[in-house]
Write a protein that binds this DNA or RNA. Structure first.
Lengths: 216, 216
DNA sequence: ATTACTAACTTACGAGTAT
DNA sequence: TATACTCGTAAGTTAGTAA
């Protein structure tokens, strides 16, 4: 259906037109929707032409009911929204192993970061990170969980930014930490994992291997 | 939001714009929605003007995220549809006792109908019906349950139409049958009850008394 | 009372193009 | 490349009114 008729269809649904014929007038619908009587008349004729409702107009008003096609179109809007809003924030994502930019490796070599990792997660970092290419939308959902923060610091030379961390499990077996520096050059489809061990070796991964990452 | 932008907002949501900033181009959105690049540009600016998204355009693309207002508007669509589609088909309705048109009383006096009632429901009809004024939408839901049919018949003089029947319980106490003649002059906000007894007396009802009718 | 046609008005759209 | 302005055209809206 034309989207601009969605509110009208919602109103008709509330009146029961998904279940049985309902009788109404273009005038009353006009009052309830803010459109003119003439526009409602036209819109209902459009919905009929598009096969979304059955309509029987007379001088005493209009009787109408949704067709199966009409019900389906309305329900598909519902299902899309349901998907968006009732999604158990799927705290897992699939990623494809790719070569890293070295950004993460750089961080894992810096003592001040290493100390904080040890303090927060109880392990010494394996030097190097596992870079995963993921669906950016999925990554957004993943990283919308509250992160554990590694704090930035300054040296005489420069400023080091903070890092967001999410403890996770890779392939339901190996514990790791997904990291995202506050200021990063990473594109939105990359996420980096650090761990106390060499993840590539432990999981026998090559480039293009696919792994599953679950929040913990 | 303008309804005509709903599909665009759904697309943005799927890309994760409810949760975090996403980066995209008007051109790619145009391809995915079927609108022109110019229209997407205009629509995004509209959404920003309406306070539904935050938008940062540059020569490398657009970064955007839904505002709370935008999230709310989208969610309200969802909640309305949820209401419509996940409604436990409330098979009960409230009705206000009103004087009848006598239509039901007429039917309950005709032997061929009386016999069928006896056969289907096992009781002799009390002569007369209880007329209830109900919400037409609620009645539609109620009567969308599969009815038990009393069949029409012909005499030398005229044709008598069929009657749809729904066994029910009034005020959770007294059994009755809601009836709706196939061809009726009743307005959509009236439903009639028949029973083996005088419902008005049994339930001490006057005009304007409110009763609850539950499908059985 | 209705529905819905006509005609005038208003808004939306997108090709061309500037930046 | 990107966004977005201009402007001619298409589509949507509604007041008046017929049926």
């Amino acid at each position: 259906m034309k989207e601009e008729n969605l509110a009208l269809c919602l109103l008709l649904s509330k009146k029961g037109a998904l279940l049985s014929k309902i009788k109404l007038s273009t005038f009353s619908l006009a009052r309830q929707t803010g459109f003119s009587q003439q526009s409602i008349s036209r819109k209902l004729r459009e919905l009929e032409t598009d096969g979304l409702i059955e309509r029987a107009a007379s001088t005493s008003g209009i009787e109408l009911i949704f067709t199966q096609k009409g019900k389906n179109e309305l329900e598909s809007f519902y299902l899309e929204l349901k998907d968006i809003f009732s999604k158990k924030k799927s705290q897992s994502l699939k990623g494809k192993v790719v070569d890293g930019l070295g950004e993460g490796s750089y961080y894992t070599a810096i003592p001040q970061y290493k100390e904080q990792f040890k303090k927060l997660f109880g392990f010494d970092l394996f030097p190097g990170t596992l870079n995963l290419e993921v669906d950016p939308a999925q990554r957004n959902i993943f990283t919308s969980a509250p992160p554990i923060q590694i704090e930035g610091f300054k040296t005489a030379q420069r400023t080091f930014g903070g890092i967001n961390c999410w403890p996770c499990k890779v392939n339901s077996k190996v514990s790791a930490v997904a990291i995202l520096p506050h200021r990063t050059n990473h594109p939105a489809n990359i996420i980096e994992l650090v761990a106390p061990i060499n993840l590539r070796k432990k999981l026998s991964l090559e480039n293009k291997s696919v792994v599953e990452v679950k929040l913990q």
